[in-house]
């Protein structure tokens, strides 16, 4: 039997009294390229601009390019089979590792590596940014007041994870 194994399978979750870092495994990621109006009847209303995420029927829909979307759903998702033939579909579930960082200093930890404004008023829940962390491309998705999901390239996941947990050290109380 073939088993799935995450890039962070042997990484330890990081916990301090103010901050948690760990992996959120078990999602599917489908990249769909095409016109929003052709895709949205299946997925639900798609976000109008890059950087906005919406949730629809248990999935998170992100616009990651002018005509490109990410559909993040449960680990097993049959949406691929329902999408119109005109859409260009690329499954990417294995290409990204999802790291979750949550806690009061989460924004400060991210600001160490990412040249973006992480102030509450500037990086709000429901928005995301494709940017660089530790020289690697990441998608940082704010999913709560001080909770972020980071989609890192699978092959860089261990490096990024170690970087994050090291960056977190100074905030431990």
């Amino acid at each position: 039997m073939l088993d799935r194994r995450s890039a962070l399978a042997s990484a330890k979750p990081y916990t301090s009294s103010v901050l948690q870092i760990g992996e959120a495994h078990g999602f599917s990621l489908l990249q769909v390229a095409g016109l929003a109006k052709a895709i949205s009847p299946i997925t639900g209303k798609l976000p109008v601009k890059v950087g906005l995420a919406v949730t629809s029927e248990g999935r998170t829909l992100m616009r990651t390019g002018p005509n490109q979307f990410w559909i993040i759903g449960p680990e097993v998702d049959d949406i691929e089979t329902k999408l119109p033939e005109i859409a260009i579909i690329t499954p990417l579930s294995h290409s990204r590792t999802r790291i979750v960082i949550e806690g009061e200093p989460a924004r400060n930890v991210l600001a160490k590596g990412v040249p973006l404004d992480f102030h509450h008023s500037a990086f709000k829940s429901g928005t995301f940014a494709m940017t660089g962390l530790h020289h690697t491309p990441v998608l940082v998705h704010c999913v709560g007041e001080n909770r972020f999901e980071i989609y890192a390239l699978r092959t860089f996941a261990v490096s990024v994870y170690e970087w994050l947990t090291d960056a977190a050290l100074e905030f431990a109380r």
């Binding site: 890059v50 990651t64 390019g65 002018p66 494709m130 660089g132 690697t136 491309p137």
Partner: peptide
């Protein structure tokens, strides 16, 4: 190119 971002 926004190579570490949207790659456009």
């Amino acid at each position: 190119q926004h190579v570490l971002g949207c790659r456009q």
